[in-house]
């Protein structure tokens, strides 16, 4: 297997759990303490997929405005980088009792975006699956590009 290093950008509103999702995926750890990220934080992990770039959108299920922010970010990214591979993580599934987004809205989002995951960086639910799915999408895009 050819080894390809790829850069994946994690985007989303503040305090939605971007750092925590990456931390969970890379080191399988989680910290309850909220520490705001300033600048560019780079974490690396080797997975068995060669890939070019993609995006991980992260929103917070307890704050519907973070989903609205994703919609804006997605249109900006698509405009600038074209149709890149992406997955959408609705994070903080462990706080689902406090979610204010309706199931109907999330279903509509799934139909519109595809590859929407309800994740928890705290428990690790669906984080691995979502990011592995992104890798698959990146490969598909790469092969179609090739």
């Amino acid at each position: 297997m050819t080894r390809v290093t790829s850069k994946v950008c994690v985007v989303g509103d503040f305090a939605v759990g971007k750092t925590s999702v990456v931390e969970r995926f890379v080191t399988n750890q989680f910290s309850e303490k909220y520490l705001s990220t300033v600048g560019v934080k780079i974490d690396t992990k080797e997975i068995d997929f060669p890939a070019p770039s993609g995006f991980i959108y992260v929103a917070d299920g307890t704050r519907p405005d973070t989903l609205t922010a994703i919609e804006h970010l997605h249109s900006q990214i698509t405009e600038k980088y074209g149709a890149a591979a992406f997955v959408l993580l609705i994070n903080k599934r462990d706080l689902m009792h406090d979610w204010t987004v309706s199931d109907e809205y999330l279903d509509a989002l799934s139909k519109s975006y595809g590859n929407v995951y309800r994740t928890s960086a705290k428990t690790g639910d669906d984080v691995e699956q979502a990011i592995t799915r992104l890798a698959e999408l990146i490969i598909d895009n790469d092969m179609r590009g090739a």
């Binding site: 290093t5 790829s6 850069k7 300033v38 600048g39 560019v40 934080k41 780079i42 690396t44 770039s53």
Partner: peptide
């Protein structure tokens, strides 16, 4: 240098660029 300085991945070495607060 992309190994010890991973921010260089995907960076063009033919364009002047500046990055703030790189970890």
């Amino acid at each position: 240098m992309r190994e010890p300085a991973p921010f260089l991945v995907g960076i063009s070495v033919t364009d002047s660029q500046r990055f703030e607060f790189l970890e």
